[in-house]
Design a protein around this nucleic acid. Structure first.
Lengths: 205, 205
DNA sequence: CTGCAATGTTGTCAATGGCAACATCACACT
DNA sequence: AGTGTGATGTTGCCATTGACAACATTGCAG
């Protein structure tokens, strides 16, 4: 009962790239990045040991591609919010902060890969550019909020550092198994939203 | 000019465990965790390929031991501050927050290893206990500060989450190569201390 | 319908982690 | 001092893996 029998002929898998990514995600979730092996994935999927190489030249490239998928979805969500016209610039900024942590909680593997220096070391230029694009969007959103009067007297770089640290820290704590006990009995997202709200509750005009 | 020639006989290295750890640290700093190989270390040091196994049963155990060294030094520093009698309880808490980020900046490899799920997955009970001990010390310090009137009306778990996220985030941002540009032209430690001070500047009686 | 580019396969190699059997040494105990 | 035992180091081995090369199959564009 192989799941890939709907392919007319079995020589060409037809969807190998996507299946590799999704199986790799499962592996990472269950047993960590170090457990990802191109050959094991190939065995699991039922193709020859070198087939994955047609889609990812190296193991690192597969991991980087997953990270790329992650950052792409993060930027997509952030850009959508930024275009929304129903929010003040300050609320957009808050939504962006909450969106980042939400995204990290919803996509713990992608989040972890993006924070993993071993993975990012092999990132290609597109991936690096996308991460920078997100940071720039963040900075611009801060500047816009400041232009509308929110903490307009502060240095935007400082706000950027502060907000980046806060959201990165919350995302880390929320998805790190070490800290699960912190949330015992409390819904993670609510506790986090409340902390972010508190941050944004000051400095309003 | 080998550095290990001061050993009388060369059969027993005499200091292999420590040298393995220090060489591994260099490797991680230069080329990341994934570049650590027991055999390469053995070659580098000049012992046989299986010698490292006498000190670390697996590669993961070596990495976990380095993480253990890190958390031990972190706890040592924190406990020293906590015992200081010249600080108010609130100042002790602030010193602990600053101390954590300082430690992370001074020991980026250790900090990264402790945050690395692949490494922590293989942590033994002692390492897990030590990390919990640090969290407990943090929580106790918060409670003491609250008992002395600092934010005494807030839930200490919330403060813990907030402070842990802030410090973890600052440590992450400060040591992540992705964010080096944020600190362009600004001393890292000063920028971070100022953010932490700001956090502690509110809620004082 | 044909030839080429994309995709998959088989075979091979060096490096690695890990295990086992053996060698050497330091040190505690008498 | 002598010894023997546990700690530490060595050699040899094996399975797995990433990576590469040469070859096979197939879909598709012209």
């Amino acid at each position: 009962m192989k799941s890939d029998q709907d392919q007319s002929s079995s020589y060409h898998h037809g969807d190998l790239r996507e299946v590799l990514i999704s199986k790799a995600l499962e592996t990472i979730e269950a047993r960590g990045v170090e457990a990802v092996s191109l050959r094991a994935l190939a065995r699991d999927i039922g193709v020859s040991h070198a087939a994955p190489m047609r889609h990812f030249p190296t193991r690192s490239a597969l991991l980087a591609a997953i990270a790329q998928n992650g950052i792409t979805s993060l930027i997509g969500a952030a850009a959508r919010q930024a275009r929304s016209t129903r929010l003040t610039s300050r609320d957009k900024l808050q939504a962006m902060a909450e969106g980042y942590v939400d995204w990290a909680i919803s996509n713990p593997v992608h989040h972890m890969l993006i924070r993993n220096q071993d993975v990012m070391r092999h990132a290609d230029q597109t991936l690096r550019d996308d991460i920078m694009a997100y940071a720039h969007l963040h900075e611009q959103t801060i500047v816009l909020a400041q232009q509308d009067g929110w903490r307009s007297d502060e240095v935007s770089k400082s706000i950027f550092l502060e907000l980046t640290a806060l959201t990165a820290g919350l995302a880390l704590v929320a998805s790190d198994p070490i800290y699960v006990t912190v949330f015992k009995g409390r819904p993670r997202r609510a506790a986090i939203k409340s902390i972010i709200s508190k941050y944004f509750a000051t400095g309003n005009d």
